[in-house]
Amino acid sequence: MIIISKYLVPKNYSGLTIYPFVFLKRKDLKSDDFLLNHEKIHIQQQKELLWFVFFIWYFSEYLIRLIQHKNHYKAYKNISFEKEAYQNEGNLNYLLERKKFNFLLYF
Rank of each mutant, 00 (worst) to 15 (best):
N12Q: 01
Q87M: 07
A75M: 03
K99F: 02
F52W: 05
V22R: 08
E82K: 06
K100N: 14
R98K: 12
E84N: 12
G15V: 13
H42V: 06
K27G: 01
K74R: 11
L50K: 08
K47M: 00
Y76D: 03
K99I: 15
G15I: 05
Q68S: 11
Y76L: 05
H72T: 07
F107H: 11
E39H: 10
K40Y: 10
L96V: 09
I2N: 10
G15N: 02
N71H: 07
F54V: 09
Y62L: 05
G90R: 07
D32V: 11
F54T: 02
D32P: 08
Y86V: 04
F52V: 03
F81N: 07
I4A: 13
W57E: 05
K11L: 10
I4W: 04
L95V: 07
Q87K: 15
F81R: 01
I56L: 13
K40L: 14
F81G: 10
S14N: 04
L95M: 13
F59L: 03
E89Y: 04
K25S: 14
Q68P: 01
D33R: 15
N37R: 00
A85D: 05
F52K: 00
Y76G: 03
V22I: 15
K70I: 08
Y86N: 09
S80T: 02
D28K: 06
I3C: 09
P20V: 08
I2T: 11
V22M: 02
F107I: 14
A75Y: 07
F101Q: 02
D32R: 08
A85E: 06
V53L: 13
K74E: 14
N91W: 05
N88F: 14
E84D: 07
D28Q: 09
H72R: 07
L35C: 08
Y7K: 15
L104T: 09
K74G: 06
L29I: 14
N91A: 04
W57T: 07
L63C: 01
L49P: 00
E97L: 15
F54P: 01
K100I: 10
F59I: 00
R98Q: 12
W51Y: 15
S80F: 05
I64G: 01
E39R: 15
V53C: 08
I41S: 10
Y86P: 06
K30T: 09
L29R: 04
N12I: 13
F54A: 00
F103K: 01
Y58R: 00
K11F: 12
K6Y: 12
W51E: 01
E97C: 09
G90F: 13
P20T: 15
N93A: 05
L16E: 12
L95C: 00
P20Y: 15
F101H: 08
E48D: 07
L8A: 03
F23S: 11
L96R: 12
Q44Y: 02
Y62V: 03
R26F: 13
N71G: 10
V22D: 04
P10T: 08
I3E: 04
Q44W: 09
P10F: 15
F34A: 14
R98G: 04
S14F: 10
D33A: 10
N102I: 14
Q44F: 03
I56W: 09
